[in-house]
Design a protein around this nucleic acid. Sequence first.
DNA 1: GTTGAAATTAGTACGAA
DNA 2: TTCGTACTAATTTCAAC
Lengths: 209, 209
Amino acid sequence: MSEISRNGVGDGGQAGRIGIGLELDDVHLKILEVLRENGRISVAALAERVGISRANAYTRFEALRADGAIKRFTAEIDHVRAGLGITALIFVTVRQQMWKQFRAELARMPQVEYCAITTGQHDAMIQVRVSDVAEVHTMVTDRLANIPAVKATETVFILDEVLRRPYVLPSDRARPARRPAQETQGEVPLGKMRFVGAAEGRATLHKEG
Amino acid sequence: MSEISRNGVGDGGQAGRIGIGLELDDVHLKILEVLRENGRISVAALAERVGISRANAYTRFEALRADGAIKRFTAEIDHVRAGLGITALIFVTVRQQMWKQFRAELARMPQVEYCAITTGQHDAMIQVRVSDVAEVHTMVTDRLANIPAVKATETVFILDEVLRRPYVLPSDRARPARRPAQETQGEVPLGKMRFVGAAEGRATLHKEG
DNA sequence: GTTGAAATTAGTACGAA
DNA sequence: TTCGTACTAATTTCAAC
């Protein structure tokens, strides 16, 4: 057993998840790096690529899963080939204290790939995948607009997905692509920048379903 | 060999990728459904869950990969446990005809998990994962603001990720959660809705690197 | 945390329906 | 095309170091 707490066999179940602030060492991160590129690699091959023994790899692999650091394994598909070539972002303004209803409706919309609650002028961002632009219109008007919790929406289309990493790791910063940072050469033109603060009374939200 | 074109062994290589508009049947979709939830499932178990023979499962599995319908297998991690608990969206306005430079700079930023070109008032949306809010500020001011291609940025923070599916499939619509659609009950309050058109001269963009 | 061997399982290659 | 089976190769498990 490593420093990672796990739902060990024989646990009563009460002491299930304790160490919430676990620290992943370099080996853990290396494992996650390899799995990011090849989620179906055998643990034996994984051990070799990371430079540890197989038994160690099995232990750490299981620990990462049991701890929840690895949530699941999945595939990445070509949405166009799957027949869902249209991607849109829908920014939603939600009526306060109707979040629970909003979440419940979201679960019933299979076109939704991602939904996040944000600061800024809108309250949530939804990413949807559909087969044609008309379906976006249908979704926004027939589904979203009929949800009382939804006060307003704003839709933009995604023209191209430039970059998509399964996930980011702290170890990625260590060895970036090229040119070692170069520090801040002179003052930054702050006029370019604009932060958008959180809307009032929304920072206290937390998962409810 | 199925209806999916593949880089079959013995192919000269010239006739590699032909059928770009391939049609996935129900069995293909079922396979993708299973792999979405468990990307590490063995092909034998996959065959059983889909209800086909092992040989057939191997054929289709390989066909999906060779065709590019499945791009890769990967893991899903808990970003908080990985030490990157802060997620932000940065909306970027890009100076026209400097997209190539913008893309090149993006590749050097390991904190970026996702970047898409969008319609609407901004030109691109970047999703970043960092360890603390200060790092967002650093990214925007030190990195992005120093890119000539970047005209302006607008940053919002993600307070909660409500829903995240690895991908959406056309077959998901067939059997949604509950309540069979109920049709449009009366007219839709269109006043709620607002579409944002594409900025001029940007729809002609395509991948360059 | 590592190595080596046994047991299990996965992947491949056929022929038949 | 799909299925079923036999064959080969690899992986996982378990042991001792």
